[in-house]
Design a protein around this nucleic acid. Structure first.
Ligand code: SF4
Ligand code: SF4
Lengths: 138, 138
DNA sequence: TTAAATAAGATATTATTAATCATATTAGTA
DNA sequence: TACTAATATGATTAATAATATCTTATTTAA
């Protein structure tokens, strides 16, 4: 029951991008160094964000990454979904696994509501808000 | 961001115990067979619950396990704490790891609130309630 | 053409979760 | 007492997931 580190890396990266002047390409290596993150692994993370449509990347000199969405609509829940996939507290709440009892099971109902509560909390603040505070430590 | 299987096993076991006649020792092997769970692993799980004070065990013939708490006060949040330890969505929300920024960081605040929401949801219904529905599938 | 940047896939490492094994302990009962 | 049915415990293994690195390719501006 934890966020993966990769999710934290992604959140920090996005905050950096929100703070950067709009439209400017930010160097990924610089982000890795600033936050002391493994560079290659961060690149992977960025690729995932790119495929999910949250950032744009550009190769070559003067290349880098930048936001592809508005900071006003981006939420931690989106990052979680991009990196870890759709939230499923239990297999029966995911798409694949089908449990016979799932329409009756009271446990499932509790977990379902819990999930909804999680997503609600993680959708309350946008990255525009988050970027105002300090998020610099490792 | 998932419950471990062990937590599900624990929840099912506890529901079985709540449903059993009060005070009667239930055979752990029977629970394992009914739910098709790995027997030895379930025993470990039961030990954890026993150490956490949620169940009582008794060895020898006529032995077994039974609830050590009232179904009216037992909640999924308690099981989660017993099996997975105190909830910490991010290292900075746990006891060990101390992050310089943790009093300012807006991300941490969001995660903190999310955690509280999770625990609130998982504390709304008691096992007395849960045991009324069907929880039988694998 | 070169240097600076990300992309991609394969691989390795580490940590966690899940399961099993072997053995010990307990207690009722014949 | 000896036997049997039960859980306890610690060591070990197996499986899975998370984290990190390596290598090579591709892109682009200068
Ligand atoms: S028993 Fe309930 S919570 Fe468990 S898998 Fe089935 S529906 Fe889901
Ligand atoms: S940056 Fe914020 S969320 Fe991340 S570890 Fe530090 S306090 Fe916690």
């Amino acid at each position: 029951m934890q966020l993966t580190r990769q999710t934290e890396y992604a959140i920090r990266t996005l905050i950096e991008l929100v703070r950067a002047p709009e439209g400017v390409m930010v160097n990924s290596k610089a982000i890795a160094e600033k936050h002391n993150l493994p560079e290659k692994f961060l690149n992977k993370t960025i690729q995932i964000l790119a495929r999910a449509g949250l950032v744009e990347t550009r190769r070559g000199m003067q290349g880098g990454i930048r936001l592809a969405v508005s900071p006003d609509s981006l939420k931690i829940a989106d990052v979680l979904a991009a990196i870890e996939g759709k939230l499923a507290l239990n297999p029966c709440l995911g798409g694949d696994y089908h449990c016979e009892n799932q329409y009756l099971c009271p446990v499932r109902k509790v977990l379902q509501r819990t999930q909804e509560a999680i997503l609600a909390e993680l959708s309350k603040e946008t990255f525009a808000d988050l970027a105002k505070g300090e998020v610099t430590c490792e």
